[in-house]
Design a protein around this nucleic acid. Structure first.
Lengths: 234, 234
DNA sequence: AGAATAGTGTCTGTAAGACATTATACA
DNA sequence: TGTATAATGTCTTACAGACACTATTCT
């Protein structure tokens, strides 16, 4: 093992913040400091260095950086695929522990964060540029979200408080990029047991809609039997 | 950012080596150095420190450590979920980038590696102890393998050269812990296009069986339509 | 002939998805 | 009365899984 820190890489956390706003997915970016050694003043994913004197865990690193640098606490987080190499950061050998973060009303208001439509980063021909390997991270995050929107109730985390089933369905439709059949969607959600009726209702356009809330604790429910994990049937 | 390396965590790679031997899954462990500062002489997952002067990438770190410390090169690797905290390593704040590694005949012969049945680490009541958080990593690795044995052809990597469909089926059965229907399995593999007939055949017990080989490059084919990723249908 | 294995054809139960209907609110 | 939405009942169909059958090889 190395006796000094000389050969240690830079260790960072990067956060792909996603929210649903105006019927579309948006990515949250922060402007890097004007005196940053690299990519000064450029919009980038929020994140920061692991600091062993401040954090108990890598999860702490994420939350500390998001709280201090953008003033938000994600409603939910998912670990993405780590990466580490000599080239991703001009400052030197670095490792990133990337997170996908679900942002909703409970996450707080941020002055520092700027929101951009996710679509401009998914375009195959001319995606908006991002520093480091942040474009790859954004795409990886969406890829995960997209797949989970098919089989899990994780997208529920984009909503908080009381909401209607139509509003929830819209969340899934935005992520999946296509219309869903109402009855099928309701059956899925019903089977998942991920939400519960608040007892209240509200008038939506020309009809009365029941209100629901996410059940606590919110589990990552997978719909399909075929996706059930190990340990449950042998 | 930190001006010194003082607050940097230890960065390691840990490898969950799996092979199929005597009709069961086995985990490869190495005995830690007798003069190691912690867990000296104890059996543990192979791995090592990221060394920025030797490695171009985290993948290099993995391959360098496996080559030098156990003398093997995995047939295939999959990134597992990163973790980092103050407590997993008695030496201090550390981050692990864990890999699941598929070992087969092409991986080479190792003097240093000791193989143990995976089952003894999966037992819910009295699993064999492992240092650090290595037990968790082993279980996470198997969990991934188990799930992928249902929908992908990744388990093919446990075989090399020419093999029969029955041999391949046995691999999947060992991972899934249950018998599979021959015709269904063959249809799955056929649809996946992951293997090709070598043209040769061999006599197995009382019948002649066709020989197959993994197709190059070997893609991680997912069987079910429902598991198809984003970007393919909109 | 009998046993064991490779290889292939066919059937069925289930559940995801498509479609249809009713109830309600309001202009 | 017409329209838009919530909410729920029913139908279709694709496919995973179950089952059956034939061919071949060897004792």
């Amino acid at each position: 093992m190395p006796d000094s820190d000389y050969n240690k890489p830079i260790c960072t956390v990067d956060a792909v913040l996603l929210r649903i706003h105006n019927a579309q997915l948006e990515v949250g970016l922060v402007k890097r400091a004007d005196d940053a050694r690299v990519y000064a003043g450029v919009l980038a994913l929020p994140g920061g260095f692991v600091q062993t004197d401040k954090d108990q865990s890598i999860n702490d690193t994420l939350l500390r950086n998001l709280k201090s640098k953008v003033g938000l606490t994600p409603a939910h987080t998912v670990k993405l695929e780590f990466d580490g190499n000599l080239s991703r950061d001009p400052e030197g050998w670095s490792i990133t522990c990337p997170y996908l973060c679900f942002i909703n009303q409970t996450s707080g208001k941020s002055e520092q964060l700027h929101w951009f439509p996710l679509s401009q980063f998914l375009a195959e021909d001319t995606p908006t540029a991002l520093p480091f390997d942040h474009l790859k991270l954004v795409r990886d995050g969406f890829f995960r979200l997209y797949n989970r929107a098919k089989y899990s109730t994780e997208p529920n985390h984009f909503l908080n408080g009381a909401f209607t089933l139509s509003e929830l369905q819209q969340v899934y439709e935005i992520i999946l990029g296509k219309a869903l059949h109402k009855k099928n969607f309701r059956d899925r959600i019903d089977e998942s047991n991920s939400i519960e009726a608040t007892g209240d209702s509200k008038i939506v356009k020309r009809s009365r809609a029941q209100l629901f809330a996410n059940r606590q604790p919110m589990s990552t429910h997978f719909f399909s039997r075929v996706l059930q994990g190990a340990f449950d049937d042998h």
